[in-house]
Amino acid sequence: MKSEKVELHGFNNLTKSLCFNMYDICYTQSVEDRKAYIEYIDEQYNAEKLTEILRNVTDIIGAKILNIAVQDYEPQGSSVTILICEESAPPQSEVHQLDVDNPSVVAHLDKSHITVHTYPEYHPHGGVCTFRADIDVSTCGEISPLMALNYLIDSFEADMMTLDYRVRGFTRDITGRKIFIDHDLNSIQNYISQELLDKYYMIDVNVFQENIFHTKCKLKNFNLDNYFFNFSVDDISKDEINTITEKVRKEMDEVFYGRNLP
C-alpha cells in the first residue's frame, strides 16, 4: 500500500495517527455475576497484558521503545503509554518502565507514542455490560500505524470497532514541493485482511482533502450464547431469550451508530 519512494529534503515530518476504539458486550443475570465479569475483563486486559500488546504493535510497525508507563486503576481499568522511535533506541537495560501502586501504561517512542486505556462499565438497571479499550498509535517518519491494524483487531476480537486515521502536517521532496501524504490510501479498509472484512459490517466516513479516514465496524454473526457470562440459553426461557436479545442488540446498535435508540 506504499507509494513509489520519493527522495525527501531532510526528515519525513508527516504525523500519522491511528485511533483504535473497540467494544465488547456481555450480559449478566445478577449483581454478583456483573461484578465477576468486570473483574474478569479487568484481569484479562490488565496493564501487563496491554503492555505486551503494545510491545508487539511497536515491533510490527518497525519502531523502538524508549519508555513505558503503566497503570491499573481502582475499581477497574488500565492505561499504558509507550514512547517509541523509528530508528535507533537505547539498550533494553536503559528503557524505563514505571511501576507504581496502581499501574497504567504509556509508551514513548522518540518521534512517536502509543497509548491504551480501558473502560469497563455496565447499565445501572439492567444486565448489559460494555468493555471499551482505546488505543492511539501516533508516528512520525516513514512508519505507519496501519501496519499493526490486523494484529490489534485480532488481539481484542471486538463486537464493535471505531477506527480513525489521520495524516497531519507535511514534508518536502528535494525540490521543496510539499507532500501531505506519502502512502496510497482511500479507506482504512485497504489495510484490513479479507478474513476480517468478511466478519464485520463496515461504514466509511472519509474527508479525503484533509487526509482524515473513519471506519465503523460491527460483527456480522450474532450468537446470543457468546454474550452470556456464567450461563447459557439452555438456562433461560424463550421469553427471556427474546428480551435479552433485544437488549444486547440495542446496546450494539447504539454503540455502532453513536446515538440512543428508542
Rank of each mutant, 00 (worst) to 15 (best):
K35Y: 03
N67W: 13
V106S: 13
D136A: 10
P120C: 07
L66P: 00
I25M: 10
D24G: 04
A133P: 05
Y257D: 11
G258L: 05
F222A: 02
N186K: 01
T215N: 06
F208G: 00
D253F: 06
N13C: 01
V100N: 14
F20K: 05
M202N: 02
C129W: 03
V205F: 03
D101C: 01
F131C: 01
I68Y: 00
D235Q: 11
G62R: 03
K216Y: 04
M252W: 00
L185M: 10
I174T: 15
R55S: 10
A148D: 08
K178H: 13
R177G: 02
E32H: 08
Y201K: 10
D225N: 15
D72Q: 13
T243F: 08
N67C: 04
V105F: 12
D110L: 14
Y201T: 02
M161S: 12
V95E: 11
D101M: 06
N190R: 09
I41R: 06
E86A: 08
P124W: 12
P120T: 06
K64S: 11
A36S: 15
D235S: 10
Q194Y: 01
M202G: 03
V207H: 06
R132N: 03
F229S: 00
S237V: 05
N260C: 06
T28Y: 08
I60A: 07
D239K: 13
N223S: 01
E210K: 14
T118A: 01
Y191H: 12
I212W: 03
E32C: 04
D204I: 08
S78G: 15
L98W: 09
F170S: 13
V100P: 03
N190Q: 10
N242S: 12
A63H: 01
A69Y: 07
V57F: 08
H113S: 02
L197P: 00
S93E: 15
V100Y: 10
M252L: 05
S138L: 06
R132S: 03
D72I: 04
K238W: 04
D182K: 09
I174A: 09
I181P: 02
I60K: 08
I82M: 14
M160C: 15
E86Y: 07
C217P: 06
E87K: 13
V100F: 07
V57H: 05
N102D: 10
L14V: 14
Q209G: 06
N186S: 15
T245N: 02
N226T: 01
T243H: 10
N226V: 03
A107G: 14
T162N: 07
I68K: 05
D24N: 15
I241P: 04
I212V: 12
S193C: 00
Y27Q: 02
D101W: 11
S104E: 12
I135A: 13
V100A: 07
Q92N: 08
S30Y: 10
N223P: 00
A47L: 00
D136N: 14
H108Q: 14
K16M: 05
Y151F: 15
I153P: 03
E195N: 04
I65F: 05
R177S: 07
I38V: 11
N242E: 12
I212M: 12
I153W: 02
P90W: 07
L219M: 05
D110T: 13
E210V: 00
L224N: 05
T175S: 10
M160S: 14
A133Y: 13
N12T: 02
Y200N: 01
I114E: 04
S187P: 07
E86T: 11
F213T: 02
D159M: 10
L146R: 11
H214N: 13
N211I: 01
I143T: 11
K16C: 03
R166S: 13
